[in-house]
Write a protein that binds this DNA or RNA. Structure first.
Lengths: 162, 162
DNA sequence: GTCCATCTGCAAAGCGATTGCAGAATGGCG
DNA sequence: CGCCATTCTGCAATCGCTTTGCAGATGGAC
């Protein structure tokens, strides 16, 4: 929840998300390339798993900016398709860089104990969206899927028998 | 979001969730069968889809009780396994009667426009939990799956060509 | 009926998120 | 390069959902 995230260890994972692509998308919508904006995306680029706004704020370090600015920018960047928003049910939204657009669709396996996040490749219910749309008359059907569990380190240690 | 829910039309759907079962479970944990408690479960019994605490509060009518009491009871009843909690990502938790326990596992298809909720029978990712547990060493794996879309009534009407 | 644990109402507060506003920064244009 | 409209930021106030502390009420076992 508010423990320091232990998954910062995949640095420079998204080098291909070039600054060029970013500035291009920003320019296309007459948005400005500001210091905070770059710093936020930089933080996301250095982390392999979704972060809360508070975690992003903490990770900014020297490039510190107001929390409200982070909220506003995350909203904007999400609307632009540059970041993806996840909700793990603990009341705080989490954000992750959207790699290359909507093609890298994935979900997460979250430990109920320590919040460790494992990325799940592949999306199983995707093929069901069409059927649901047809059966219920819905359009633009999407879904949200997250798994929860106890990771090996958080498994409860059995009491020694006396 | 805060529109009056239009799905109150499945009355007495859960007659089998007898008062007996309820009182039994409550007694087992030395909890008390109070007026508010019965009224809350009564409201849930009369509605076919998950309700927010505010909606429950509004539906109480004559049996009105404090919002805090509803929050506390929903927490308790959920811990006892009598109600199920859902999160559709709009910031408000929703609650539904748990019919007979954990056997009636299902998900929802939620309209992005009017919040109409369609219950989806069957659970597709269930079979994947075991594999995820094996592959990543997790135990007690569960998941959360919700679909979103636009229901027929909320589809955007195309502009007439001038 | 008595007594203790549990529960309720009320009010305050916590927390994530949003917003209004004045001043600062950006980027297009001449 | 410098001007200007637009966008952005920081700050503070605010919102909505949820939780909590406390005193008094209620339920249920005896």
């Amino acid at each position: 929840m508010n423990k320091p995230c232990a998954h910062h260890a995949h640095p420079h994972r998204l080098v291909q998300q070039s600054l060029g692509e970013l500035t291009q998308k920003l320019r296309d919508q007459s948005r400005k390339i500001t210091g905070p904006r770059q710093a936020l995306l930089d933080v996301l680029r250095r982390h392999a798993h979704p972060l809360t706004n508070k975690e992003i704020h903490a990770a900014l370090g020297k490039a510190d900016c107001d929390l409200a600015t982070i909220y506003r920018n995350m909203h904007t960047l999400q609307a632009m398709g540059l970041v993806k928003r996840y909700d793990f049910g603990d009341g705080a939204a989490r954000f992750e860089l959207a790699e290359g657009g909507s093609d890298h669709h994935h979900h997460h396996l979250v430990c109920r104990g320590c919040q460790t996040i494992v990325e799940i490749e592949g999306c199983f219910p995707a093929e069901l969206e069409a059927e649901l749309a047809r059966r219920h008359g819905f359009s633009e059907v999407s879904h949200r899927l997250e798994f929860f569990g106890l990771c090996p380190r958080c498994r409860i240690v059995p009491e020694p028998t006396p």
